[in-house]
Nucleic acid binder design. Structure first.
Lengths: 250, 250
DNA sequence: CGCCTTGTTGAAAACACTCAACTAGAGTGG
DNA sequence: CCACTCTAGTTGAGTGTTTTCAACAAGGCG
């Protein structure tokens, strides 16, 4: 890789992590440098490639620069349950820093560029930067909060559940600047959404028809457009508190 | 509270936290003292009392000394989804140290004695004890792993799901010495189990009948007894990896 | 004893699943 | 350019699981 490309990637990381962690609490200059210095090389994954597999103990954690990824587990019958969706700026795999071996796998949902953070460098951060450590910890706690909301949402009917997923993605994408004109690119098939919602692909299609019939959103050609945000939120029982997007001192 | 009672509680905390955190990695003497010093007063909660409510920002985290607790969220219709069950030795609410305000509530499932750890003292730990900080962080990551497994288990049929819940509780209770003769006290009604599994109370009863018919376990008078552990595990598709009960250097 | 909670059962309705067929579109190779 | 193929999306019909509602039994406790 050329020095220039590396420099571009470092700039991307700086911008994305800045948006992400600064969304929780202000980073000092020293902290910003510390996290940048912790970054290792970057890698490109094709859609459907596993970034990490269950049972492995990677010695690095990954941050998404662009593209979509998901964490998932599978039943014995081979049914896949996606437990979280990840978008640019997400520290997908910070868990593997402390939680070994992996209890789940991570897959690229689209082609996906990621930055690797070697665990030994993250450890240095925990030794020298307590405030930054708390922000990284917080980052994993927000993931847990998403899991809890997803558990609750399993109680909704398919249509409401689908709407809720879209609401969550809409706000998270907005936080990293990936929304324009109330629309976002959604490079995901209905079958994959089925694995997120825990229902069959056929039923995703029917749930989608309900949401379309209510004219809450459109989803065509890999583009989702929100038509009526307030109505969509109400239909989805969506309360964004669990995303923890407001800044509070930590 | 008398000095003697306080001394007893400190001893309980030492023993429970010792079992818990030492299960992840060995604590030094200084670390053991640090966590003991972080402990504040204790409180007793009646069954069905909320320890913390959604929207609040408590300035302490709680460790269960005895009794059962659960974290839960509710839908607009009032359906309650329990996202995690907590038993003695669990740091129920370590999340609230960094994640404010609470995205969920915590309820005592039985009468419940808890130790409070003021956040400002936990913060001191993060400033001075990086290794202990990583263990506390890890503790919250294991909770997230439980959430993920619960999400996956939502795909199982009610009977298998119920069996899985019992398997998880069996191993976790065993880790804190609350199993004897393959049996444990389960001070929980079928209605509460329904809120854990995300199904109706009536269906819990039918799921229980299936498990009983297979003679995998008995559940009478608040006592659950495992009859055929291996068969129960197989029926539940239970793989204990996600509990992270083996010790690894962190 | 009566009351309340908890557990249990039956029957009908709601919801989601499977299977199968079919459409539309993108991409490929002749 | 047209067939061919593959994937993704859509629809219908029949099946299975879970829910709801209602009733009733069993036990604890005032």
């Amino acid at each position: 890789m050329s020095g220039e490309a590396l420099e571009n990637e470092r700039r991307d990381v700086r911008q994305l992590l800045g948006k992400k962690l600064n969304g929780y609490d202000t980073l000092s200059g020293a902290e910003t440098s510390a996290i940048e210095d912790a970054m290792g090389s970057c890698r490109l994954f094709d859609a459907n490639a596993d970034l990490v597999r269950v049972g492995e103990s990677p010695d690095f954690s990954t941050l998404i620069l662009n593209g979509w990824a998901a964490r998932y587990k599978s039943t014995e019958e081979g049914a896949r349950q996606i437990t979280a969706v990840h978008i640019p700026g997400d520290f997908v795999d910070l868990h593997s820093f402390l939680l070994r071996p992996m209890d789940h796998s991570v897959v690229a949902l689209s082609s996906c560029r990621v930055a690797m953070f070697p665990h030994h460098r993250l450890r240095v951060i925990t030794e020298r930067h307590p405030h930054l450590t708390r922000l990284l910890w917080l980052n994993t706690l927000v993931d847990a909060a998403l899991h809890r909301e997803w558990l609750l949402m399993m109680r909704l009917r398919a249509g409401n559940h689908l709407a809720h997923l879209i609401c969550e993605l809409y706000l998270r994408l907005d936080a990293v600047g990936l929304i324009s004109n109330r629309a976002f690119e959604f490079p995901i098939t209905q079958a994959v959404v089925a694995d997120m919602l825990g229902i069959s692909p056929v039923h995703v299609n029917r749930a989608l028809q309900e949401v379309r019939a209510r004219e809450l959103l459109t989803w065509q050609n890999k583009i989702v457009t929100i038509l009526k945000w307030e109505e969509l939120k109400a239909f989805a029982q969506f309360d964004p508190t669990y995303l923890f997007q407001e800044k509070l001192p930590r």
